[in-house]
């Protein structure tokens, strides 16, 4: 926290780590540098399938999925400042809608995407709209409950969702006559989704709407006094954030061909939130780093296993007290 004000920054600059941070921050302040690094990363990403094992591809595909989810939640928590503790629910709605439409009703995967997204928006509005006028803490607990309720509903509506054992036999989509059934296919798809999500986030953040989200986050009353409809602005953050998750859910269903309610439980929401907090709320590059860290962490530290969540709890507390801006260095003026 101290590092946020001018004097704190001056003190911090003297220590080695902060010096590196400052230089990093200055480097990434330049738009061209950012784009160059981003392009290099995409290029590297495109080349990985030539050299990587299936295991590597699987892990990376997962981290791309997480990047999309984190960027979605980042719009809600990072930009609009609304704590959503049930974000995985929208991932679930996207996945289930796609799964049901393609397996039960035999729709083509690509045609199922628009209704799945529409469904995500409808569920989001039902959960979000009634409570948007309320205090932020109320919102947090309502979203927490809503996430659970959606999972319980998915479990209870057995005829439609397959109940606790879930949906199986979801059709693989095909693209230009090629059936997408290889891990490398999904690697490329999720890489594309992640790149798309980064682009979308960047453009939204630096737009009239993106600024409005941040005004509402910083001071709702002042934003309202400046002519900003706080309810509409919050709702738009909710919807757009949920759309990221819904879209990820569509492709997730196709990749897995089987989904069950347990994939979307409360812990999934929390993992996404931890990644967002770790990477630094409101920062796109931070989301990439946070999502990668979140997926790689359990792979590297397998022995921790069941203690993982305990560590996540600690991370949330420690980050909020000592470094609320996340691991990625902050811009300082």
């Amino acid at each position: 926290m101290a590092a946020n004000d001018g004097s704190g920054a001056a003190v911090a600059r003297r220590t080695g780590l902060a010096g590196v941070e400052d230089r990093l921050a200055a480097f990434f302040d330049d738009r061209r540098h950012r784009y160059a690094v981003f392009a290099a990363l995409i290029l590297a990403g495109l080349l990985v399938p030539r050299v990587g094992s299936n295991y590597t591809l699987e892990i990376l595909t997962n981290s791309f999925l997480y990047i999309v989810l984190c960027l979605g939640l980042n719009i809600i928590v990072g930009y609009a400042g609304l704590l959503d503790l049930g974000f995985a629910a929208f991932f679930a709605v996207g996945a289930y809608s796609t799964g049901i439409l393609t397996s039960t009703f035999g729709w083509n995967f690509w045609l199922a995407i628009p209704p799945a997204l529409l469904f995500t928006v409808i569920v989001r509005v039902i959960i979000g709209a009634p409570t948007l006028r309320l205090r932020s803490d109320y919102l947090a607990i309502v979203t927490l409950g809503a996430g659970e309720m959606i999972r319980i509903i998915a479990r209870n509506m057995k005829d439609l969702t397959g109940g606790a054992s879930g949906l199986i036999g979801i059709q693989r989509p095909s693209l230009f006559g090629l059936e997408l059934n290889q891990i490398s296919h999904y690697y490329y798809i999720f890489l594309a989704l992640a790149v798309l999500a980064v682009f979308a986030s960047d453009r939204l953040e630096h737009s009239r709407l993106g600024r409005a989200w941040k005004y509402v986050r910083d001071d709702e009353d002042a934003a309202e006094a400046m002519g900003i409809d706080r309810v509409a602005v919050k709702l738009s953050a909710y919807i757009i954030g949920a759309l990221f998750a819904g879209l990820a859910g569509c492709f997730y269903a196709a990749k897995m061909t089987a989904i069950s309610p347990e994939t979307f439980q409360f812990m999934q929401s929390i993992m996404i939130l931890v990644a967002v907090v770790l990477g630094g709320m409101g920062k796109i590059a931070g989301m990439v780093v946070g999502a990668m860290a979140m997926v790689l962490f359990p792979e590297v530290f397998r022995e921790i296993g069941s203690m993982r969540m305990l560590v996540f709890g600690l991370i949330l507390i420690v980050m909020m007290i000592f470094r609320p801006q996340g691991i990625w260095p902050d811009r300082r003026h």
């Binding site: 305990l310 709890g313 991370i315 949330l316 909020m320």
Partner: peptide, 8 residues
């Protein structure tokens, strides 16, 4: 967020 962390 801290409260959530404590809960976890």
């Amino acid at each position: 967020i801290t409260a959530m962390g404590v809960s976890l």
